[in-house]
Design a protein around this nucleic acid. Structure first.
Lengths: 241, 241
DNA sequence: CGAATAGTGTCTCTCAGACAGTATGAA
DNA sequence: TTCATACTGTCTGAGAGACACTATTCG
């Protein structure tokens, strides 16, 4: 352990400070970007074009750019924007995983985020040349992936299901206008279990989360009223579903 | 961005890999160790003996030891053991904070954990020579601290209060045997609000979290039955208090 | 006895779950 | 009319909140 007591002031210490004095782990940010495509939960994956784990499927992410990023969340948002074109997703830090074995290059730390976006907002710019791919959860289970990314997805998936059951984050996979049936269906898929129609509607209505529009959506059957989210701030329910 | 496509195999790539090729942020772990002393919530602080922020109060924590630590949680547990002598606390990762301004040495990332321990288990070995100090939450509010550590404490405090309201983690600040009144008092302090006696007891009893011992604790008034926690695995309640 | 603390009985209110019933469109 | 989907009415049960009541110790 280095002793720095030979410096008199913090200023003097900082002038002489050498950041490479301590051996540092690799630091990355990984993103689990979820969306709903045709009532199926999908997660965005990229095919790695570089070593290590070249050719394998991996979560979008990468190193913090110490020059352009001023916070770690900015890194996450930058990566998300690059891959999807989406600027303001619902995003949440899930957890930070760090150990000596997860990356063949050595001790590695990654901060995992998950994001929810409406699929209609996605613009696949794909300037990078990395192949991007929306993988369904069934495919996640059977695909081979780079690093510990399958575990990361499972962690994010679990957090997602959990959080949907006591908040209103489920709104974020839908476009601006939606019917209550679509909303319920989205919640059901995100939580991975069926809900009672009456309970669901009562919950949304009495929490005053939506406002009815003067439009209807007609497919088969009785036309459904269209709604929009009333507020974009996170709502917590006192009870889980 | 480096191109590594000149390597044919992953093995060849790894042999030539230079970890200092990317500029890396500083990576640390910080701990918010909470306990109850005389029915007052305290957090463990150390006085920094080294630059930067020499002399200021800071959370215990520090760099990952790439040789001896095999996971980031191990780093946290090692630091906790060193400061308190406690081997198996309740510990939970709160969040990872990373930005370019929190540490004068440069871009810095810290993973924050909070821990709950019973104060009776603490052995202040204090071999390191760092002055350690249990600070009450009122003192936290008015003390000046190193780095962004006051913010970190506030984050951890918030998570703690929240989590106590829908889980049984409050048990972990008490010794092995306790009365229900002591348990309730602990929950109240951790959550920072009063609870109804009947509701609290009903909740604990119907979740089958405690077993009654054949002992009583007598101070003033009617002697109280002593209990112990039935299981050490985390219990979630469906409703918040 | 009264003070202090432990512990219970019981009513109310909120809200999830269940499920039957009604409404409104298209073919 | 039938089918499909939207939407409502209403009962039940779990569990939190409130608060008065009883129980057991000590002085």
């Amino acid at each position: 352990m280095p002793n720095n007591s030979n410096y008199k002031t913090e200023k003097e210490f900082l002038i002489n400070y050498d950041p490479s004095e301590f051996e540092s782990p690799l630091v990355t940010v990984d993103l689990c970007i979820f969306t709903l495509i045709d009532n199926d939960l999908k997660v965005l994956m990229v095919k790695r074009s570089q070593f290590p784990e070249k050719g394998k499927l991996a979560l979008p992410g990468g190193f913090i750019d110490l020059n352009s990023d001023s916070t770690i969340e900015e890194t996450a948002l930058r990566k998300l924007l690059k891959k999807t074109g989406v600027k303001s997703p619902y995003i949440e830090q899930v957890s930070t995983i760090g150990n000596k074995s997860r990356d063949p290059r050595g001790w590695s730390v990654t901060t995992l985020y998950f994001a929810l976006i409406p699929h209609v907002d996605v613009i696949e710019s794909n300037e990078v040349g990395d192949e991007v791919k929306w993988l369904s959860m069934e495919d996640v289970a059977i695909s081979s992936m780079a690093f510990d990314h399958k575990e990361l997805i499972n962690k994010a998936r679990e957090r997602l299901a959990n959080k949907v059951s006591y908040t209103d984050i489920g709104f974020h996979v839908l476009p601006a206008k939606f019917t209550l049936s679509q909303l319920q269906k989205a919640f059901e898929i995100l939580m991975d279990h069926k809900l009672e129609k009456k309970s669901f509607r009562r919950r949304m209505m009495s929490a005053d989360l939506v406002s009815e529009l003067d439009e209807v959506s007609s497919e088969r059957g009785r036309p459904a009223a269209l709604y929009e989210a009333k507020s974009d701030k996170l709502h917590f329910f006192a009870r889980s579903l």
